[in-house]
Amino acid sequence: MGTFIVRRLLVALGVALTISVVSFMLLHLSGDLATSIAGPEATAEQVAQIRVEYGLDRPIVSQYLDWLGGALQFDFGRSYYYQSTVIDLIVERMPITLTLGGLALGLAVCISIPLGVVAALKRDSWVDRLALLFAVVGQAMPSFWFGLTLIVVFAVTLKWLPAAGSGGLEHFILPAIALGYYATPAMMRLTRTGMLEVLESDYIRTARAKGLSTTSVIFKHALRNAIIPVVALAAVELGFMLGGSVVIESVFSLGGLGQLAWDAISRNDYPVVQAVVLIIALFYIVLTLLADVANAALDPRIRTR
């Protein structure tokens, strides 16, 4: 187990470094940052001046190393737009995105796991078909459009919840539904397939033959095994949702990391963009690492792979 964790940690570190290189290079090579920052009406001299001022005239490798050196100490430089350092902006906005992601994940888990279990137990019944329909619809629904529809129905027509802005918990309900529905189909399907597989296995037959109650067989024996991959998927989905929050946050004007990133992108505020990309990637890396370790702890067969 020890070597497994060490090996996975090394890979995670490597991936984090590679992503920092790739995101840095992509941003610097896909366009001229100085021209973008200066805007369309700038003269050549102004562009040249900006290039020198922001240090964009130096070789890209030395720019990267400087940036990485700072990033390792959580110093991502200063925002081009706000009068503040990038890390302050991120620390300030982070709780909103984490609350949104946590609520969305909680919602997705609370819906997808019971639904998947019932669908597997009542295979081919109307519940199963309804669950499948729910999943298929969820996979095809554009999340930004679902968010807008929620606003029109629950905020404008029914006036139950606020339409936009950040504040109390009521501001998070609609965004969490919009974001959580996105993660539900995959988790529900995995629970359902896992339960179906487990229910056909020999030890379930043994448990039944021993005369254990149905609830005990389902919850103690079957679900406990079927849920292992779902836990791992949930961690990965949380990572995806933190990345996808840029869409939902801008629909609901929820001022978290996602909104910060979108604003930064539209204002050519590259230090912020770079830092947010790296931080969201780091979250994903840590989450998948935890999921892998938890999986390996629960299922020894994985460690030897």
């Binding site: 991936v15 590679t18 992503i19 969201i280 990637a281």
Partner: peptide, 13 residues
């Protein structure tokens, strides 16, 4: 590495 990159954000940028 590709999986760890936030696609929507990177694509937007």
């Amino acid at each position: 590495t590709r999986l760890a990159m936030p696609v929507v954000l990177v694509a937007l940028a």
